[in-house]
Design a binder for these strands. Structure first.
Lengths: 241, 241, 241, 241
DNA sequence: TATGAATGAGCCTTCATTCAT
DNA sequence: GATGAATGAAGGCTCATTCAT
């Protein structure tokens, strides 16, 4: 995922007088982070080894411990860098979209895009958020909340604007959507086909907004229709008089 | 739930008057299975240790290997006993329900019930199905498929009967539902409140079947509404006369 | 190796009044012995497991311990039964052969026959005689000595009769022969060809008795002998004149 | 013998003034190798434990795994270092010897020397080459072949030069010799006497080249030849008369 | 700051042997 | 006498982490 900037570290050229100063240090950190991401997204946390990360980062194990206190902290740093980039990427575009359906389509398509581009990251997140008992209150939890706020915002705005049912349980809706995406994406890993995120996003958003029913709103419409028929009939009668 | 014995009753078997050696092999198996379930639902597979399971089962590690070939097989046995009980529990009741909405409500409520009763199992399943690359083709995969067949059946029947949209992507719908349930259940773990599975099931099924939109069937209803408005207006006019 | 009799045990039919008496016990012992032989000849002692032997013998591990004090004792019993049968087989035939070369040919051919018929046994013996530090003084050592006595006898007799060099170091010769046989047999395991034991025996005995030297005596001696004969004949003729 | 260090000098490295950490990696490797050799030559591979080797090497088990991938690789390294030293030792001297008998005497004496100096190594080699089914194709097999090439070369050269019988089966001869040496050496372990390798080598080579037969050719032929000479001489004299 | 050798606890698994039934 | 469940010690191997350089 090329768009994740390790900005602060790479931007600085080697200008300090002392040997390989800032830049060296920050670059090392980025290298380690990149290596760690490679490893953590490929296999479960417990199967990821520091020595593997070190060798991919081109350094020895000990070096990693000068940048990160321990394995878990390194993992959290990987997550953070991922979510930071994600939010930086989504926020400005999200701000320009206003219709509820369009916003949903954007968020879903973006989410799928990420999941398909880099399946490992999604799995890593699920694995770790579901895996540990220490999820609530964890860094990952906080990051996830930040990310899902885009969706929650969309839903509450939608209700406020009257585009979504007033009685919509937004938290439940959010879970349904994210859970569904995750489940679908995971299933997709198995089948080997190419999919267009924005098309799938349309289907999903459509299914959720319009419902699964063959006769959406059947009853109410029929009732209304009958009332209308009766009214019109009585009106005509009245006029004939 | 069938052969899955409540652990606390089994965990102290040495209490019997005669130190009960030579106790039924099946009983030991159950004890080990219960202990294993306790452990595997509490932490990831890799962090679960045989020695922990053994000590909870009141035996030494070696004993476990006279019942199960290895750790993975023990894990699979835990899963299998869970799913077996689950299917045995669901199948007969499912067979007596016919409406699509009712079936969905039943399946969702049952699913939530289980997830809430025994949160660990659900997490264990997610963890293991998402965690390992070896999921596809695994025993867990097969069991999951068997279980999710209830839902898939419901959806395809629903479409066939005209209760669900003819163009419904049933696989996608299934993912959306299961994923959503999982996500919601997981989130629920954090908040410490009491919920009624069947009520939540109603909400969820309602949301999915009827859609989130505030204007379901926008066009027809608007038309009708306008007709009604006009009618009522003219009626009032008529009365004024 | 069918010729190994478990005589004492199998010969007894079930005639005792009490349930499955002697015969049962002795038969069981033979079964266990046969199973043990199967296992011990197939893999090293340490890789042979009692449970494997038990299951081949159609009983459980515990049963074995009612017949043999422990694994090592069982192993020794296998060895003993093998050597007993071997000696019983060789002794009478050996007694009828008298020429040194013929005796050697017989012993070598017999040895090769066994090694080829049942390669496992030979390897087992080597493995165990070379493996343990406790070889000297062991049962196997004693058995080996009994067996090799045939050869030693042959050699000392050969020297006594003047068929072998008076200065022959018989112990060394015995080692050379047995070691060579073993080495050759082992190498043969690798190549997959069919060999005729008695032919190879001839080669080997020939090589050892006649030596490797290019100046083997036959031809020159015969020539010389003929010259001598002629000379002596003519001398005698000359004298008669 | 090259990199195989005498163990006792290396075994107590903690004695250095500064607790010598960060000692040369190569030094540790040697220590471990020496300890491993000590252990592997004393007992079968399966009975040799890494923890034993570690404690003799003055480190913990884990350390060994930073030098050798696993037990088998460590074992192979021990073998290799032994054979390397052996070949390095033999090759140059062998190259200067040309007569078949002399070469044989050298090789046999050298072999015996080694076997007597360090009996464990020989046993280890036999044990492992005979024990495992996986011998063919193993590192040990390859090393053994390299080593035995000296002998095979000697034999084929001997035949080519006419010093050995043209019909000599060199492979068989090699097996006979090596097997014999091994067997003899092993037997020698039991008896506790001092032997002179080169004397024994002479005996052995003599026995093999000249054969065991009581009618070894040299003496008798010379005698006959002398008789023939005398006879012919006297015959000629007689005729002149 | 970076190194990388060393650690040591812990894991899964095997198996000969015991002993109550 | 036979059973077979249970034992418990031991083994190979991994890996996050430390610390002297």
């Amino acid at each position: 995922m090329g768009e994740i900037p390790e900005s602060d570290s790479n931007r600085l050229p080697e200008r300090s007088p002392d040997r390989l100063p800032r830049r060296r240090k920050a670059a090392r950190r980025s290298e380690i982070l990149a290596a760690a991401r490679e490893v953590f997204t490929t296999r479960p946390y417990d199967e990821s080894s520091i020595s593997d990360i070190a060798s991919r980062a081109g350094c020895v194990e000990g070096t990693i411990y000068t940048y990160f206190r321990n394995k878990r902290e390194l993992f959290d740093a990987v997550l953070e860098s991922f979510f930071d980039a994600l939010i930086v990427d989504i926020a400005p575009r999200f701000a320009t979209i206003h219709g509820t359906r369009d916003r949903l389509r954007f968020l879903v398509a973006r989410h799928l895009q990420i999941s398909l581009d880099d399946p490992g990251v999604g799995m890593m997140i699920v694995r770790e958020s579901r895996g540990r008992s220490a999820y609530f209150g964890s860094k990952l939890h906080a990051l996830n909340r930040r990310y899902s706020r885009f969706l929650l915002q969309t839903l509450t705005d939608g209700v406020a604007r009257g585009e979504l049912r007033a009685d919509l349980d937004t938290a439940l809706a959010r879970d349904l959507l994210f859970g569904g995406l995750e489940h679908w994406t995971f299933g997709e890993q198995g089948r080997q086909r190419v999919v267009d995120p924005s098309q799938v996003a349309d289907s999903i958003v459509g299914m959720l907004i319009d419902g699964w029913s063959a006769a959406p709103c059947e009853a109410p419409i029929e009732q209304l229709t009958r009332r209308v028929d009766r009214l019109e009939a009585s009106l005509k009668q009245g006029r004939r008089k």
